[in-house]
Structures are given as C-alpha cells and as structure tokens.
Simulated scan of single mutants.
Amino acid sequence: MRGNANRSFTLRMRAVLSAAVVVCAVTAVLPGAAVAGTAGVSTVGVERISVAPDGTQGDGDSVGASITPDGRHVVFSSSALNLAPGTTTGGDKAFVRDRQTGQTQQIGHLSLLAPPVISGDGRYAAYPVPWFNNVRIRQYKLSTGGTASTNCLAYSCDQPDFSTTGRYIALVVRQPSVGQRVEVHDDSTGVRETVATLGHAQAPKPSLSGDARYVAYQDAATQDVFVRDRTAGTTTGPVEGPSVAAALVQLSDDGSKVVYLSGTDTYVHDVASGTAQLVPNVKGVAIDPTGRYLLYAPTGTTGPSLTLRDLQTGTDEIVSDQPASARTDAVSTGGREVVFHSAATDIVPGDTNGKSDLFVRTLY
C-alpha cells in the first residue's frame, strides 16, 4: 500500500479542496476535473469511468464499483454494450477499467448475480454466477482474460472477497441441509479453511484483510460481528458488545479497523485496542485500506449523499453533493480516490445518456 511521503503538502491540498467544496457545493465539476474518458490517475477532480474506448458515454446502467488500493483499476457491473470491444451479450456483465491506460475489458461472459470484486494488485477478478441449481464463484486472471479457478463445485457459494494478491478468497458457503459457513480458500494449495459455522439466515459478505490474516464476518441470525485471526487461531467478538445488534460494513485492508452499523450510527472498531470510534447519525459505506478514511452517507434526507471523513482529524470532504451510491472497497489508500455511481447529469459535462454512470473523484 502506498504511503504519503509529503503528507504536510497533502494535508494543505486537502484543506484547500475542502474549503472549495463548501463554497461551490460540488454541483458540477471541480477545477481541473477530468473529462469523460480521460486516462490517468493523477488529475484532481472527477472522471467518468463507464465510457467506451472513444470516450462515448455508456449506453447502459453501470453500478457496483470497487477500486484497487493504488487507484488504478476499477471493477464494476454494467448492462452497457459499448464499453469494451466485442461486448455482445445482454444483461449485467463484469468490467474492469484501467485508469492508467484508459482501457476497459469485459470479464467473462456469464450473467452476474452480484457486483464483481478485484484483488488489491488488480490481477484477478471474481463474481458469483448461476450454475444449474447452485451458485459458483468464477475467478478470472485479468492479464489473459481466462478463467483462473472456480469455487464450490459441489455446493453453492457467493459473497467473495479477495486478499491483495488474489491467492486467498473469503466467501459464504451455502448447503441446504447443513446451513452456512464462512470459508477462506487458498487457491495456491487448494486448502479450504472454515472460519465460522453459521445458521440458515442469509449471511452477508465477509471482509478479508490484504494479507488474509484477518476475516471480519457477521452472523445474520444473531446480528453480531466477529473478527477471526487466522494466524493466531482466535476469534474476537461480538465486537459491538453482546447486547447490541450490528451490521458489518468492511474490514480495512491492513486489518486494523472494522466498520459496522448499529441503529442510526456508524462505529469504527480498533482491532488492537478493542475500542470503537463513534460516527453518529451517518451510514458508513466503506473504509480506505489504512483504516483512516471513512466514506459515509447521511441517515437523513439532507446534506451531501457521500462524504469522506478523516477519522484522525475529524475533517470531512464532500465526494458527491448529488444523489449517489457506493459500496465497500470504494476508497483507495490514503483516501485519495473514491469511486461511486450516480444518475445525476451534472457531475461531468456532456452527461446525456440518462443512465447510471460510474465516477472516480480524485481528492488530491
């Protein structure tokens, strides 16, 4: 993961940008914003991701995006047919955008059951697909476009999450007669480790640290959140306390923080100390790989739709003042980039397709 060698300069730039956001309300494009289709990862402002090779806007809805820690690759689902050469199949498909080269490729040709995920190094992508009466997770090697592996050949599984290198994948296994369990698969050795055995309630997506040491998961039946240390062989939790209902959002890539929701509030649990930082009256959406920057949405109807908070300083920066949504893994290292989707027409110039588009806001 990247560090910030010139942190003082970065903080000054972030302060300047934050002040500009307050004045301008971010109703259009920030100064220096990238136009649709612009390649590169360094321009402060907004870049539309869901565009054709020639910069033409997508002809379908694009949603469910995640960004790699270095901000270079964005994986997402879309019904558009013009985003990559050779895209002919209908329905929602998986795509990955290389922001450095400006190229987009379709990942596989099977229908999506959920948005795709990408490994931290941008080498692998995966998503659940229907397979007769079951659901399987198909993994792809992006350099070749070919299938890397398929999980759960004899039963159903979904909700995948990668380690940084893509060697490990956390998932939820579903067997009607047995119930559900959280597993971590080592695709190098073929070893499958059961992290937790759950009931029959629909289990949400587990969250895996970049080195695959920690796995955060939720028992949907009890509404408790736990953290498994695979190296030590220990499980901590419920992290929110035994008498409080919680919903898991995400484990930071370094394994230091767990974001969960409880009531109308968001909590950021520190794995080392066991303490939690309260962020009241907001819905946490994602956390950056270092555990410092929290992306959240308001629980009410007023205010920006997406805001990034520096948990150390308590300062906020508006990501989108227009209606917008994001998912986990939406923030790159150090809170530099945030990926989100929106049907708003004034985030970048020339947005006339009437579709939900993907955008990356670069903050510094």
Rank of each mutant, 00 (worst) to 15 (best):
R309S: 00
V271N: 00
A272D: 08
T315Q: 12
G300P: 00
L278Q: 14
T301Y: 11
Q322P: 06
V285A: 00
Q277T: 11
P323Q: 01
T313I: 11
P298F: 02
D321M: 04
L278T: 12
T275D: 11
G291H: 02
L294V: 13
T315L: 14
L294R: 08
G300A: 12
L294A: 12
G274S: 10
T290R: 12
G314E: 14
V271C: 00
P298S: 04
V282T: 05
Q322E: 10
T302K: 10
S305K: 06
G274W: 05
L295W: 00
E317G: 15
S305A: 12
P323F: 12
Y296D: 09
P280M: 08
L308T: 00
Y296K: 08
I318K: 01
K283D: 13
P280W: 09
S320T: 05
S305M: 05
T313P: 06
I318V: 12
P304F: 02
S305P: 03
T302Q: 10
S320H: 06
D321A: 14
S325V: 15
D316A: 09
G303Y: 03
D316H: 12
N281P: 10
A324H: 05
T299G: 13
N281K: 13
V282R: 03
V279R: 11
A276Y: 10
A276R: 15
S320Y: 03
R292K: 14
A324Y: 06
P280Y: 04
A276N: 10
S325E: 15
K283S: 15
P304C: 01
G303R: 00
G284A: 03
Q312Y: 13
E317Q: 15
A326G: 02
T313V: 08
L308A: 00
D310H: 05
P323I: 09
R309Q: 12
P304S: 06
T302A: 11
T315K: 13
N281S: 14
G303I: 01
E317N: 15
T302W: 04
Q277R: 11
Y296T: 07
A286M: 11
N281F: 11
V282K: 03
E317D: 14
Q277S: 07
D310F: 06
L278F: 09
G300I: 03
Y293R: 07
Q322R: 14
T301H: 07
P304A: 05
L278S: 10
T299K: 09
A272C: 07
T301M: 12
A324D: 04
S320D: 03
V279D: 07
V279S: 12
V285L: 11
Q322T: 10
S273D: 00
Q312A: 14
V271E: 00
G300E: 03
P298V: 04
T315E: 08
L295M: 07
P289C: 08
T302F: 10
P298W: 04
Q322C: 08
S320N: 09
S273Q: 10
V279Q: 09
K283A: 15
T313M: 08
G303P: 00
T307E: 04
Q312H: 13
S305F: 12
A297Q: 11
T301V: 11
L295H: 02
R309V: 02
T275N: 13
L306N: 01
